[in-house]
Amino acid sequence: MEKLMGTVLLMLDGTQITLQIFCVTLAMALPLGLLAALARISKLRPLSLLMELYIWIMRGTPLMLQLLFVYFALPMIGIRLPDIAAALLAFTLNYAAYFAEIFRAGIQSIPRGQYEAAKTLGMSYSQTMRRIIIPQMIRHVLPPISNETINLVKDTSLIYILAMNDLLRVARTIVQREFDMTPFVVAGVFYLAMTFVLTWIFKKLEAHYAKYDK
């Protein structure tokens, strides 16, 4: 029992890194994803094409490769980032691309009549987006955003290749040292706990946004 407590305490430290990556990535990737979505549907063709390219690269290559690239390749061209910053950069760029596509689909699902009503009331493009389109879009995209967010919790385990002591790496270290599989089970329970909390939060959000529906 005492041994288990020790394991749990060690792994709580690892959870801190995991949560840090998760929270900062989410806080940066959501707004960036929204901006990218707006750029993607922009009438400025070069901007829209640039975003298409960015999204294609980020979704078309493994996140693992992107992490390795930021961590090992960037220093070769003189960009040396602290470990945690490198991981955050890769995660944010990757997740912003996924969020951008979700937001884009959400924005495009709003009927044209909403834009026309806003226009005939004299609202500008930015007013229309801010006040009419995006608030409605958020409700539509909550389920897919919830999905991606849960993926992010699990994807944070990829940083173990960057020798950062996140939850999974701590578990593996203990397993290798003591040849006891319990830490893997504990790690699984930790991930489940985090996704459970997220699922609960998104359920509340969906209920909140459903209030204007039937």
Partner: peptide, 15 residues
């Protein structure tokens, strides 16, 4: 701005 419009599909803001 001196014109108002009413649509077939109402187009109220549902939120």
């Amino acid at each position: 701005s001196c014109m108002g419009m009413v649509f077939q599909q109402f187009n109220l803001f549902p939120h």
